[in-house]
Amino acid sequence: MIALFDLDGTLTDPKVGITRSVQYALDRLGRPVPEADELTWMIGPTIFASFTELLGGADEVQEAVRLYRERYGTIGLFENEVYAGIPALLEDLREKNVRLYVATSKLQVFARRILDHFDLSRFFVEIYGSEPDNRNADKRDLIRHILKQERFDPMGAVMIGDRKHDAIGAKANGLTSIGVTWGYGSRQELIEAGVACLVDAPQDLAEPILTLTQTTPRRAATP
């Protein structure tokens, strides 16, 4: 039994750190700076894709990402909060012999520092994320990389996340997916992306993980 967890919007709430770092980058570029609530859509997609959309495909994307990481890597990654019930869930799954991994589009070095800071690293076999050049930022590529490295059967694994990118990445690699509703993706977004089920609270997540990591046929959730 294997479970891959997204980080932002699934294990922790990164809203403050991400939105403030985006605002910092925009301010440094001399661009209009939206309110934080207008930037939460950027939590989930890759940072390059988000800035490309935000800036209208401008040539400033590389510089925007650099400025974002300048602040996020020193301040923003700790402007973060573990969702209530997550440590207990991870402890329960580990006691039930579920092998746990992190699969995040965030830079691997940032993900490891966040999980170390919140004392969550101890629950995971390995923490996987993207590289500075954007390699493995797409969840399809990231999960493919994890499968190559870990060599487990995708039929015995599940991807847990709050955005469509998690479900799309899972489906492309033969994994089922669970959508969590306490993050930043809508229920409709997750259902349309093909999650097997939706879960509304961390304390309710263990049962579907255990069920869906059995190698049996699965069906997508319905609205």
Rank of each mutant, 00 (worst) to 15 (best):
A193R: 10
E207P: 13
Q203L: 07
A196T: 10
V195M: 05
A206F: 12
T215C: 00
A196F: 00
Q214F: 05
S186F: 08
G174P: 09
E207G: 14
L175W: 03
C197G: 07
L198T: 14
G194Y: 05
E189D: 14
C197A: 12
T213I: 14
Y184G: 01
E189P: 06
L175Q: 04
S177H: 07
I178A: 07
T181G: 00
A206E: 06
S186K: 09
V195K: 10
G174M: 01
D204K: 15
L198A: 07
D200T: 13
W182A: 02
S186H: 12
T211Y: 04
V195S: 08
T176K: 11
Q188M: 12
L175C: 08
Y184E: 04
R187L: 06
E207H: 11
G185N: 11
T213D: 04
E189C: 05
L205E: 00
T213P: 01
S177L: 05
T215I: 12
V180E: 08
G179E: 06
S177Y: 06
T215Y: 05
P208Q: 13
V195G: 06
T211P: 00
E189N: 12
A193I: 00
L190R: 14
L210Y: 08
L198Q: 04
G179Q: 02
E192P: 04
Q214T: 14
V195H: 13
Q203F: 09
I178Y: 02
V180C: 06
E189H: 04
Q214M: 10
Y184S: 02
G194K: 09
E207M: 05
P208H: 08
I178N: 12
T211F: 01
Y184M: 02
Q214N: 08
G174F: 03
L205Y: 00
A201Y: 12
G174Q: 04
G179K: 08
T176E: 02
E192M: 07
T215G: 00
E189S: 10
L190A: 09
Q214I: 13
Q203I: 11
W182R: 09
I191P: 00
G179P: 00
A206H: 13
G194I: 09
G185C: 08
L175F: 05
Y184K: 04
L212H: 08
L198V: 12
T176N: 02
S186Q: 11
T176D: 02
G179Y: 15
A196Y: 00
A196M: 03
L198H: 10
G174I: 03
R187Y: 03
Y184W: 12
Q214Y: 05
E192Q: 15
I178F: 01
L210I: 10
A196D: 01
L190N: 10
G174N: 06
L210W: 07
G194H: 06
T211L: 05
L205A: 05
A196S: 15
S186G: 15
N173Q: 03
L190P: 05
Q214V: 14
P202V: 14
I178S: 09
R187C: 05
I178H: 12
G194M: 04
V195I: 11
R187G: 07
L205C: 11
L190H: 14
P202K: 14
T176G: 10
E192H: 13
L205V: 15
G194Q: 08
V180Q: 12
I191Y: 10
D204A: 12
P202T: 15
E192I: 01
G183F: 15
